[in-house]
Design a protein around this nucleic acid. Structure first.
Lengths: 348, 348
DNA sequence: CTCCCTTTTGGCAGCGCTGCCAACTGCGGA
DNA sequence: TCCGCAGTTGGCAGCGCTGCCAAAAGGGAG
């Protein structure tokens, strides 16, 4: 622990002085040390423009010797476009968004872009505030979840001149680029699958739909499909807070207390479905003969439980990757449907 | 989809011109529109220094009218310190790190700091490269996992003059600030617990220890404790890649094939332990009478399975929060031990 | 040896903002 | 009436880098 806290100067200390010096090597100093002009150093470091091999070596030697780290803040200000990509995501607890970040960050890193993020907690107002804060960094792109934004957010993004990518939803009008899949189709196919399997007395266990609008879209299409079949949803149990295994467990327990004769339950996602699965395990409810369970997301853990979970696998990592690729390539506005995969599993 | 892709000019298009204009409102333009000087606008917007109420209103009106969004890049360059905090984390699949990010980002957002991150995949070389890239943004702080860095990384961080926070480990020498708990203590207490419970024929299922050095520390202390008791580890199964439920399942299967008479198994973390748990469920191995299972992390899902998982709960979110608070407060170098909690559960 | 063209190089004006400092405005007290 | 002070305000020099342009340095060909 040798460092002094910032703002605290060890008076006359050699250490502090070296330290300060180290922290502030500039391009101009490198240029001087290498005996070349500033722009030459800049060209060499960015490998852009032309310069001789000898010059290159001298510059690199000086960089090495001085421990120069370029200042991207200055670089970004001086040049036109930044290499920042801003993520404004609803949550970091939900694996969906960390998967998206994971996919995107790999691609961004390869292309020397830098990811910055902030978390809205599914609050559109906070989304607007955070998006504004993000725009202040003049990112190359802003990545958001879905289409449901405040008017202010929309207007601001449109006016910002930076690319906008809306992720994980395709049921709506894109501002610029959209990458994901249709949540409505997912809900529809989930219902169709359960009907195909012969289930008719179907219930739903979900989490806060006002906030997670994508889950809301799945649910409403799910219900529409059941209605169209003449076998509407029998009962629902919606928990106020975020999705979790524990909530799924409690939700199913409450649902079954009210509706005793269900033959299948659709969960808002796999976390909830796993909770339901564990509830059945603990209570000795036979799956799927006594009760079928269907989830959404296709988490790995769903495949590792004794009976693989029936669910829909969503391309979360690929969504992040694709979004990042489009941004890096500065692709024209478009909507990309990555689809999803229904996994039959053993629970429905 | 009205926007034209960047670099493509719609010739003579009014739309494009407006667009360009919108994207580039500067402080100077606001100043002119409000009929005040630039520094006055700056003062009002940052609420710093003194100005009259009337001035404030005129400035805010102009800001509103023009849709001005301050340029933080320029602001950061002009002032001394940045409000960026850089995270260089091993993985985003491991919930540990998204929990840390979650805790930190909440605190950072409150204080108008901005989080940027990149992912090393547990590769120290990549860590060095990414840390360098991060320093180029002149962050207020760099947050890293643990103490194991390359010499290059260490040297660079020391020279950088920005705060360094090492997270989730306390067994080593901190560069500056450290926040977390002792992984060695966690391994030790896990072993002591199993011994206390009467288990003597103990095995281990883990994931790549060269890369996840914190898991390695836990494991080595675990073994030391068993050795000290005169009941050394009987068998181990170490999977080459990252931890996952599936790997835990396979690992336990292989371990039991080789060592038939184990009475307890220690897993490198809860994901792995859950895999082991599911393996036992599927094979009808009675827990804990036939085989005890012990994990690490204290994930929520471990509490929701029929028999709550015996494990150690780590303060992941609190680690992120505390780290962020220290950075925001520009606290002096220190190491903070947040401890951990042993959860007895029902599996051991 | 000169000319012309290509490659390499340096100078310097910003990028948009902040921080410093000087100047201005009132206003009460001498 | 003038002075001094606190509260306001504007001007302007950078922050460290990039992009443009002009200048210098080769390198054949004539």
């Amino acid at each position: 622990m040798l460092r002094a806290p910032k703002g605290f100067q060890m008076p006359g200390s050699k250490l502090t002085m070296e330290f300060k010096h180290q922290a502030t090597v500039t391009l101009a100093e490198v240029a001087e040390a290498a005996g070349v002009g500033e722009s030459t150093v800049s060209r060499v470091l960015r490998n852009h423009g032309s310069f001789s091999g000898r010059t290159r070596e001298r510059v690199m030697a000086a960089v090495q010797r001085l421990g120069y780290v370029p200042n991207r803040i200055a670089g970004t200000l001086a040049s036109t476009g930044s290499r920042l990509v801003a993520f404004v995501i609803p949550s970091l607890s939900n694996i969906v968004f960390s998967d998206v970040l994971r996919g995107a960050s790999a691609v961004l890193e390869e292309n020397r872009y830098q990811a910055v993020f902030s978390v809205t907690d599914y609050d559109p107002g906070k989304e607007e505030a955070l998006a504004t804060a993000m725009l202040a960094w003049r990112p190359a792109a802003v990545m958001l979840a879905g289409y449901e934004h405040t008017d202010g957010t929309t207007k601001m993004l449109r006016a910002s001149g930076c690319r906008v990518v809306e992720l994980l939803d395709l049921d709506g009008d894109a501002l610029d680029i959209a990458v994901g899949f249709s949540n409505r189709a997912a809900g529809r196919e989930s219902a169709a699958f359960l009907l195909r399997r012969g289930y008719r007395r179907i219930g739903y266990v979900g989490h806060d739909l006002n906030r997670d609008t994508r889950a809301g879209k799945r649910f409403s299409s799910f219900c529409d499909t059941l209605d169209a079949n003449g076998t509407p949803l029998i009962a629902r149990e919606i928990l106020a807070d975020a999705s979790s295994v524990e909530n799924g467990k409690q939700g199913l327990e409450r649902l079954l207390a009210r509706a005793t004769d269900l033959d299948a339950v659709y969960f808002s996602n796999d976390d909830m479905a796993l909770g339901g699965y564990f509830h059945c395990l603990a209570r000795g409810i036979a799956i799927p003969s006594q009760l079928a369970i269907f989830g959404y997301n296709g988490l790995d853990i769903g495949r590792a439980i004794p009976q693989p979970l029936s669910t829909i696998r969503t391309p979360r990592v690929a969504t992040g990757q694709t979004a990042a690729q489009l941004v890096v390539a500065n692709a024209p506005p478009q909507a990309i449907d990555l689809g999803f995969e229904l996994i039959e599993g053993a629970t429905a």
